[in-house]
């Protein structure tokens, strides 16, 4: 079921982006770098796919953008979390915790008769 897999991945990417922006506003490259750094390079986001996701989340009102200057003094588009985005992040975390906990229970369960 490719559609469901896409939705799952997109939902996960949205959650990771929202969480990364919860601390401070970042531009796209900063978001990718932060996710890779925090995950110890385990989570490799396809870098280009981040931008349609960012624009989509902005349209949904979860994040908002503004142009500023980067550390290297270049014009860069910064994203920050909105109140709606914080609520969405909280809902996503709760759902993720519930699902991952359930998966953990299944994986830890002993086989019947073993």
């Amino acid at each position: 079921m490719p559609k469901e897999r896409d939705d799952l991945l997109r939902g996960t990417l949205d959650m990771l982006v929202l969480k990364t922006l919860a601390g401070e506003p970042r531009h796209g490259y900063g978001i990718v770098s932060r996710i890779q750094q925090v995950s110890g390079d385990v989570l490799q986001v396809e870098e280009g796919s981040l931008y349609p996701a960012l624009h989509r989340m902005e349209r949904r009102g979860w994040i908002r953008s503004s142009w500023g200057l980067s550390d290297s003094n270049r014009r860069a588009k910064y994203y920050e979390l909105t109140d709606a985005g914080r609520k969405q992040l909280a809902a996503s975390k709760e759902a993720w915790t519930r699902v991952s906990g359930a998966i953990g229970k299944v994986l830890r369960a002993r086989a019947v008769g073993a």
Binding site: H27, W67, S72, R75, K77
Partner: peptide, 17 residues
């Protein structure tokens, strides 16, 4: 223009890194 500028910045920053 903004989309092109944003994508190009990403490529430039990754290249520099």
């Amino acid at each position: 223009g903004e989309i092109r500028e944003e994508l190009e910045l990403h490529l430039a920053l990754r290249t520099e890194a």
